[in-house]
Design a binder for these strands. Structure first.
Length: 297
DNA sequence: CGTGTTTGACCTGCGC
DNA sequence: GCGCAGGTCAAACACG
């Protein structure tokens, strides 16, 4: 198995891509693929943690080695009540990956990692400037150059996970607005681009199907939600206390699409979507270990 | 009417 | 510099 597989947390129906190489999904990923900035996913951080600003620190992300080695131990601490990590600090303090996970990704990818690191910084800077310029003069539109010459883009930390589903856009409790769709090279399936509808939230995600297994939906998140509660549905005043139909929707989808082969798949999903309520997840303890480290050596 | 989707054009980054 | 591919914009459209 390749080095990339170390960083893949895989279950038959639900997988996390914890690092930077999604080449498994679409064959040979072009070198310029932005997917290269995917961050490693600590096995004891929840999905929601990754989406929320206050709980997310890219610098605290476990290195791939730690992820691989620590997965077994960390999952032992999981309980259904605390969810998938419960937002606690991930991994061990020895996780000395200062800023970019790509640096810890391994020597064989050094140049690529550095490039991604740069790119990430650049795109974050650009994003900030974009926001400012947009607020200052919205008329600048896309034609304007929000970033100064010589300054490079910075990309938010990203991570992806795979879900076997017949629906492309999976409910995750947040509200998304689709802003684009593109055909992807080496894949017959288009990639859809979504943005969180919360005005202050810059989180984006892309959804695409694996061309190798069309049943698998690959969702890539970028950025952190700046709000705890999902964006309210239109005309409603939903709050954290009464979340939207996230769990309902999920369960709906699962019952209709996912549970065909995996009766307790929703428990796997409940782990990363820790903020949501899945009433019948008593199997979580039993299922989590297999979820967290079915990575190939 | 407000919100979300579709879709073609455009921008950006990167490799050659 | 050019071409390609990914990413984004925004007008038009659909829908409740």
């Amino acid at each position: 198995m390749s080095a990339n597989d170390r960083e893949l947390y895989f279950h038959d129906d639900f997988s996390f891509y914890a690092e930077r190489d999604l080449s498994l999904l679409s064959g040979e990923m072009p070198s310029g693929a932005a997917i290269g900035t995917l961050q490693p996913l600590s096995p004891i951080m929840s999905f929601d943690d990754y989406l929320r600003l206050d709980a997310f620190d890219p610098g605290e992300l476990a290195s791939p080695e730690l992820v691989a080695d620590g997965a077994v131990n960390s999952t032992n601490n999981l309980t259904p009540s605390t969810g998938f990590g419960g937002g606690t600090s991930p991994a061990s303090p020895s996780s000395s990956v200062p800023s970019s996970s790509t640096e810890a990704a391994g020597e064989e990818d050094t140049s690529r990692g550095k490039k991604d690191h740069l790119k990430q910084e650049e795109e974050e800077m650009e994003k900030d400037q974009k926001l400012q310029s947009k607020a200052d003069h919205d008329k600048s539109k896309k034609v304007s150059k929000p970033k100064k010459r010589g300054e490079k883009r910075r990309r938010e930390p990203r991570f992806a996970f795979m879900t076997k589903s017949e629906v492309d856009h999976l409910e995750d409790g947040y509200r998304w607005r689709k802003y684009g769709q593109k055909a992807v090279k080496n894949s017959p399936f288009p990639r859809s681009y979504y943005r969180c509808t919360s005005p202050t939230c810059l989180v984006k995600k892309t959804v695409e199907r694996s061309y190798q297994d069309p049943a698998i939906v690959v969702t890539t998140y970028e950025g952190k939600h700046t709000h705890h509660s999902p964006a309210p549905a239109r005309g409603s005043t939903q709050s954290l206390a009464s979340p939207p139909t996230a769990s309902t929707s999920f369960r709906h989808h699962h019952h209709h699409y996912h549970l065909m082969h995996q009766p307790n798949l929703h428990c796997f999903l409940q782990s990363p979507f820790q903020g949501f309520q899945f009433p019948d997840c008593d199997l979580l303890q039993d299922t989590l270990p297999s979820f967290t480290h079915k990575s190939q050596p």
